[in-house]
Design a protein around this nucleic acid. Sequence first.
DNA 1: ATGGCTGAGCTACTCAGA
Length: 258
Amino acid sequence: MKIISWNVNSVRARIENIKYYIKESSPDILLLQEIKTQNENFPNDDFKKFGYTSYVFGQKSYNGVAIISKHQLNNINNNFIKDDLKQSRVITAELKFKKKIIELINIYVPNGNPVDTEKYEYKKEWLKRFLINIKKRIQKNSNILIAGDFNIIPDEIDVYDFKRYENDALGRLEIRKKYRELINLGFKDVYRLKNKTKQEYTFWDYFAGSWQKNYGMRIDHFLLSNSLTENIKSININKKPRSKVKSSDHTPIELEII
DNA sequence: ATGGCTGAGCTACTCAGA
């Protein structure tokens, strides 16, 4: 079972790239972030032609998350956390997998920059609420997969120049501590579990040849509850889509479970 | 190197991204 997470930076602007990716990689489930559209304008038919059903939690212009699946999913939910700004940032679903019920939690964490503004406060509050709810949820169902654009650089190794980001909303210790706190609830950062010292990224800025210079950062993650680590077959950051014409600034991260 | 590109909404330009 191949599950991928990809911040597509507009599903409509990216639809041709996404279709090409599906043909190349044929994932079972796509967890998309930053779809940047209302539900009524989501390209359901494009995915349907490949045999996928789309579950969409969109909004106008910004944010928005979706789960695209070849397999039956249950209990689709858009209310995982109370979001004071009513932004569409979390969609959850249940997947039956080998006698386990895995809760899929697809997230788009607020960016939080600049740090001296209410945007940063919103990110902190959002993460605080998210952690509280994960803590509750893991007591009910120990099989949880959290994936998406976390907008968190977990460690110094996860960015091309850490000094530039140590006081940024993505790299601040206060924010990285939240990520560690989340992991300490009973999760593994699957990429880092399988790649102890490898330096790879999932995002490269559009500006100033960042992609060509490999000025990137690892901010898209798969967290698996400890009860699911025995099911990991592979984890891969697929850089090909980032190299394409009209690409997203993020590239897909691919998890295979068996 | 806090700005450079890119997308949405809209049709000139602002807001947002990380």
